[in-house]
């Protein structure tokens, strides 16, 4: 089976380890990602002002292009892309007048009416592949590892557009249980990490991240898992307030470890806070492998 894939800028620029680990994990599960042609940045944030139509053109153009390429479903890995694409899709489906204006602007592409389905990787794993199948591929169960799933905002809200219950999500917990790990839960899992304030107010991000990581530690977590490249950057680079910083991994990196995949495709050495020591100590990764 193959699925059309929209990467977005950050996956290509600074979250390479997410993409390579996803490819390896999906290949193990028999799914090929086919990167769509001629994609552009989705615009990252959905404009919330009623008259700012120009801001919706970037995501709609991506849909129009995939439609021209014969696609009907679009896989995204990045929570921010997922959110922006979903909200833009919702807008053209709901609002005929705005849809017409937008289609007027994107003359180079054919008209787009909201026919393409956007899917986040976690939806594919939960709803298409299923935890039972995933479990069959586990070679090294993550026994004894306590994981703190961090959802942040863009995967869950606005409600109705998110992939899980906005107040009590469970997809990452269920997935980590499938891999044999224990899970620590906390209300801070669904609270913002400080997001784009990292650009001009990184002290706000440091305070947010410090709070979230300290809570994860209190709950007995060994490692934080997530799916958003911006949350990853913030949590991985701004845990200075915490005495013993927790490694922050993309959930697919841990899936890869549990599947026994080659460490070089999992990119475990591409983090500010080194996860390898912990994974070695717990016996999930052998020393010779880690050196590769």
């Amino acid at each position: 089976m193959h699925i059309d894939y929209y990467p977005g800028c950050t996956i290509k620029a600074s979250a390479g380890q997410y993409e390579t680990s996803v490819r390896a994990v999906l290949a193990t599960l028999g799914i090929q990602m086919k990167e769509m042609e001629q994609w552009n940045c989705c615009g990252v944030v959905h404009s919330l002002a009623s008259d700012n139509l120009i801001r919706h053109i970037a995501p709609i153009r991506v849909f129009a292009r995939l439609q021209e390429q014969g696609g009907s479903e679009m896989l995204t890995l990045c929570d921010m892309c997922y959110n922006t694409l979903s909200q833009a899709n919702h807008l053209v489906r709901q609002n005929a007048r705005q849809r017409e204006s937008i289609n007027d602007f994107i003359e180079a592409e054919e008209d787009y009416d909201g026919e393409i389905h956007v899917l986040h990787l976690l939806q594919i794993l939960r709803d298409r592949v299923g935890y039972q199948t995933i479990k069959k591929h586990v070679r090294r169960a993550l026994q004894g590892l306590t994981v703190f799933p961090y959802y942040g905002c863009k995967l869950l809200r606005p409600g109705g557009m998110g992939i899980d219950d906005p107040e009590a999500p469970r997809v990452l917990r269920d997935l980590m249980h499938t891999l044999g790990a224990a899970v620590a839960d906390d209300p801070l899992q669904t609270q913002c990490c400080g997001s784009y304030h990292i650009v001009n107010h990184d002290e706000i991000v440091s305070r947010r991240v410090g709070k979230i990581a300290a809570r994860a530690l209190e709950r007995g977590a060994d490692v934080i898992v997530l799916s958003c490249p911006l949350c990853h950057f913030n949590l991985d680079t701004r845990q200075a307030l915490v005495d013993s910083p927790l490694p922050v991994l993309y959930f697919t990196q841990l899936m890869g470890v549990a599947f026994g995949l080659d460490l070089d495709v999992l990119g475990l050495n591409q983090h500010h806070i080194d996860p390898l020591m912990l994974l070695q100590q717990r016996g999930f990764v052998q020393e010779e492998e880690a050196l590769v």
Binding site: A15, V44, Y196, I198, V199, N200, P229, L230
Partner: peptide, 25 residues
């Protein structure tokens, strides 16, 4: 936010989604 006044190191270090989101807001 004045993009031209941001330190070059900041711009180089940050993921594109941080920058684009910040400038859009």
């Amino acid at each position: 936010v004045h993009v031209a006044q941001l330190p070059k190191e900041t711009l180089a270090e940050l993921p594109p989604i941080a920058l684009v989101a910040n400038f859009r807001k």
